[in-house]
Design a protein around this nucleic acid. Structure first.
Lengths: 252, 252
DNA sequence: TAGTGGTCTAGACCACATA
DNA sequence: ATGTGGTCTAGACCACTAC
């Protein structure tokens, strides 16, 4: 190599291996939208030349990104920006599966938008989305049904700015994972999420929407979904009926 | 290298890269108990010599084992067989955390063995544990409390043979994760588990043990834990109170 | 045929732990 | 000082895909 790698052997305050620095640079390009979801990123050789490191170092950086589901490798073809629209990984974040039969990878058979309105963030919503109280947010309520049976009631809060232009119509017309809509229409890619689960009983309105009695125990799933750099971009509260379905979790 | 690697370039029916074959061999040694939980496995150089491959190939095999939490690397010291007794990863499989305060890594403050008996496997238990109906199993029921509040009611079923000699006394006297007891006393290391979560209401006995009313919604967690080679070794049904705690899950 | 990612090797050097 | 795992490189060859 004629030129030095990204960081010369200068005394860095906090040491970071080369491949992690490369990973960070690739992450930046992903975040900046240099390559769109579904697109191929440059080949390992190209990236190696661009960053003035060896192909093996780029490989290790991409290995980690692939392990975190940020990119997807396909032998002989290239490395691609991961997307929620991929048939392979559709509904990655939905862990409710039917007790019997196939895992139902097609997703909910029927969706109904109950409500969709712009409003100001409550203190609680603001905290979850790293906004200030009163900032504009979009609230959505919808019901998902399997085989005609209402099974999931979801309330969503989205920050207003990135999702400007999202309406009930857009949501109704869209078929496929909502996170795929966010990617293609708003450039927001959800990368990671954390959920808090509780057993609860519904209030009157919730019970009516799910067609259950008020003493039916339901699974409450509160999710905060993040885009790149751990920026929270969605708060979602789900109420799941678990009489015919269950929440499946694998512990490694 | 003077001698050939594990498998010569013969036409294998199903192709498997060298490092995966090495991984399989290391797995076999782990399963056979050649190295006990907490012990160091041979160095990468030693394993490379033993299997007649390069150190880099061994490294890739160990990388995968480390990613699956089967071994743990410690720079400068060596690679160690993972264990549930490690302070660092204690209670890996327990995802119930308090709503407020620290994640409480110390585990439940108080445990009480309610019942512990040998009996014959029902059809359902037999199916989960890959036994035959009527095979001997050990059933345990216990209550875990935080700050004096009964929070978790657990029913466990264990295959009789591997756990011969396990009694209520042994369980009561043991302090620390139950899975650590299984490792040190019975040589059974739990490697992976899958859980099915539902919202339920307790029966009279369950309600009494958890000190809640019969209409309190509870989180039901049915877990099947596996040892090496995906052999199921435990069926566990937990009932979690979620008024002060919640089940935390991270989606990658 | 050419280009991609996947495997395997060999050697150098770094960071960390222990004696 | 020695041995461990961690990083980085360079080059060879294999497997898959597309043209």
């Amino acid at each position: 190599m004629s030129s030095k790698p990204v960081t010369p052997d200068s005394p860095t305050p906090s040491f970071s291996p080369l491949y992690l620095q490369i990973k960070g640079l690739i992450l930046q390009s992903l975040h900046a939208g240099e390559w769109k979801p579904g697109d191929p990123i440059p080949s390992e050789m190209d990236l190696a030349a661009r960053f003035h490191v060896s192909q093996g170092t780029v490989r290790k950086a991409i290995d980690e990104l692939a392990a975190e589901n940020l990119v997807m490798r396909r032998q002989g073809k290239g490395t691609f920006v991961a997307t929620h629209a991929e048939h392979h990984v559709q509904y990655r974040f939905l862990k409710l599966v039917p007790d019997e039969g196939t895992p139902d990878s097609e997703g909910p058979a029927q969706r109904r938008i109950v409500d969709c309105r712009r409003q100001r963030a409550s203190a609680e919503v603001a905290r979850a989305l790293a906004l200030r109280s009163g900032d504009p947010v979009l609230q959505v309520r919808r019901v998902l049904s399997y085989a005609g049976v209402p099974t999931i009631l979801e309330d969503l809060w989205l920050p207003g700015a990135p999702f400007k232009g999202l309406t009930a119509e857009r949501l109704t017309q869209w078929h496929g994972p909502m996170y795929a809509l966010f990617e293609t229409e708003f450039g927001v890619r959800m990368v990671r999420a954390e959920e808090k689960l509780r057993a609860v009983v519904p209030d009157a309105e919730q019970a009516a929407l799910l067609d259950v009695s008020r003493d039916t125990p339901l699974l409450s799933v509160e999710r905060v979904a993040h885009t790149y750099h751990d920026t929270p971009m969605e708060l979602r509260r789900g109420l799941y009926r678990t009489d015919t379905h269950h929440y499946r979790n694998d512990l490694g």
